[in-house]
Write a protein that binds this DNA or RNA. Structure first.
Ligand SMILES: [Zn+2]
Ligand SMILES: [Zn+2]
Ligand SMILES: [Zn+2]
Ligand SMILES: [Zn+2]
Lengths: 132, 132
DNA sequence: TAATATTTGTTATAATATAACACTATGTAA
DNA sequence: TTACATAGTGTTATATTATAACAAATATTA
């Protein structure tokens, strides 16, 4: 199974740092953090990121050019991602809503397109930022 | 009403070129095209793009860093966008599906977030690319 | 073993986007 | 009309994000 494959050294280092963060990290901030572990160049980070996205260990938040770890085994297979993003504090959370994902997974347009993947990003204000 | 406001010279030039294209355009390709009209620098393009996105005349395809004209008056207000993207030929279409957008518009998570906007991108293969 | 594919390390560079600042046009209100 | 505020412009410089190209090292498989 793809998401159980063995990771290489660089992939492990990069994944580790993303998993330790509750919030999305940017490629060059990851690079900065992993320099002490022997990763020196952007490409080394981007290559690891590409692979980790491909196997579903992390997701890219497209509107933010940032990467967050996935904690749900299901979207690793379906490539179906939903995020909520606070436009004030930039807090990002992955949403796992079975009903919503079923709805989207089975969505068919009238153009005959065959979908294999989707990405949905909700924007707004989180509970904290509404109060303040 | 916001989407009927008068556009400035640069905004018109940039909008014009995006509206003439059926497919999303990238900022620097827009810049290249509008140089003959007196726009010389990236910032002039990006400022026009920002404004046009803000008033809903165009949308940004986040996963592609590209901009496409909106032909639907409704998403100019709601900032609710859905796109289908062919991963083979890169054909992009905006989807206007009332049922889907109602479903998303009224979506509530259990975190107390208040959403004002969403962007959904479907990826797959278009009719043509499936055949070939 | 040899062949094959994948990953790595490295330098250089491409592509995307914003900061800062002086200036200009436009609208609003004394 | 003048004063002020707001938004847009033109420009140079720079920041941020991402990939090309190539040689060397490592892992996979036959
Ligand atoms: Zn996930
Ligand atoms: Zn917030
Ligand atoms: Zn639209
Ligand atoms: Zn296609």
């Amino acid at each position: 199974m793809q998401n159980q494959q063995v990771l290489t050294k660089n992939q492990k280092i990069v994944l580790d740092i993303i998993e330790k963060s509750s919030q999305p990290l940017k490629a060059y901030s990851i690079l900065f953090d992993v320099k002490k572990k022997g990763i020196n160049a952007p490409l080394q980070v981007y290559r690891a990121l590409d692979k980790l996205v491909e196997i579903g260990k992390i997701h890219k938040i497209e509107s933010r050019n940032a990467f967050i770890a996935c904690k749900n085994s299901k979207c690793q297979i379906t490539k179906a991602t939903v995020f909520s993003i606070c436009e004030n504090c930039e807090d990002v959370k992955e949403i796992h809503d079975h009903k919503l994902s079923e709805h989207l997974k089975h969505y068919k347009d009238n153009k005959g397109m065959k979908y294999s993947k989707y990405n949905l990003e909700f924007f707004g204000l989180c509970k904290n930022c509404i109060k303040n």
